[in-house]
């Protein structure tokens, strides 16, 4: 006989109705539940304090000045540069004012705003962790060791670990999928389904949430030393090599319209 013999396993069709379908439905429902839970637990973002906002915007202005310095003349640029350097030296742009200069970095744990942020993250983590571990336990308790479906396409043996978790049979063809693996597949692969049901900015998927967490970064990193950042910005302004957008603009314009007149 040419070619490998295809493995035949006769599955009870009840496996489909009583394992595959329930796992899928439960996973979708948990996703929806998670979405609504996290909307429920969301804390409204706290408003920035006036002085904090001032500090941020002055920093932004300095950065704008670096990027768009070509729009204004050198004299005007220098005037602004000196003003900014003076203010930074005095420390009046800092949130804590000139007196706060010496205090240095505050402890993030003592800052109530910081604690709020961390509480929010904890809540998010809980909403993700609790249902995940519950379902994992449920599947392990009831359905471990079942082979529940066969993929309609061949795969390389590397997928064995992924598709046959909980089934310790070495010779089983890779195309057979165990219940635990089906759980993992639905865990990671249901995002499009959630998009369809809940709209595109839902909070149902684990993966998306975890990515978001990583982007947010460490909450502790929020309390940088603003004074140093301002000082660095002054230096950046200092090294800007000024050019003026109006320099030679009449020639550029004439060249541009040379053909039309």
């Amino acid at each position: 006989m040419a070619g490998p013999i295809e493995q035949q396993i006769h599955r009870d069709p009840a496996l489909f109705y009583w394992i595959l379908l329930p796992i899928t439905v439960v996973m979708i429902l948990t996703g929806i539940l998670r979405h609504y839970l996290s909307t429920l637990l969301q804390t409204t973002p706290k408003k920035q304090a006036l002085l904090k906002m001032r500090e941020q915007r002055h920093l932004m202005r300095a950065r704008n000045m670096i990027i768009n310095h070509a729009q204004i003349s050198k004299a005007a640029f220098n005037k602004r540069k000196e003003w900014f350097a003076d203010k930074v030296k005095e420390g009046t742009l800092l949130e804590s004012g000139p007196d706060g200069k010496a205090k240095g970095k505050p402890n993030p744990l003592s800052d109530p705003a910081m604690m709020d942020g961390m509480m929010g993250m904890m809540k998010g983590q809980m909403v993700m962790m609790v249902p995940q571990s519950l379902i994992m336990g449920w599947i392990n308790a009831f359905f471990s060791g079942y082979v529940i479906m066969k993929l309609p396409f061949p795969l390389t043996p590397q997928f064995k670990q992924m598709l046959q978790a909980g089934v310790g049979t070495r010779d089983l063809d890779v195309r057979w999928v165990s219940s635990l693996s089906w759980y993992f597949l639905t865990l990671f692969g249901l995002q499009p389904v959630y998009n369809f049901i809940l709209g595109s900015n839902n909070a149902a998927s684990q993966v998306a949430q975890q990515m978001q967490m990583q982007q947010q970064g460490n909450p502790m990193a929020g309390a940088e030393d603003m004074e140093k950042i301002f000082a660095a910005e002054v230096e950046n302004l200092e090294v800007v090599e000024h050019w003026y957008v109006l320099d030679g603009v009449e020639d550029r314009l004439l060249a541009k319209f040379a053909s039309s007149i």
Binding site: S73, K74, A75, A76, Y244, L246, D247, E250, D251, L254
Partner: peptide, 13 residues
């Protein structure tokens, strides 16, 4: 100090 440092434009342009 007020109006920058560009040379005045030529009469022809």
């Amino acid at each position: 100090p007020v109006f920058g440092e560009l040379a005045p434009p030529s009469l022809a342009s």
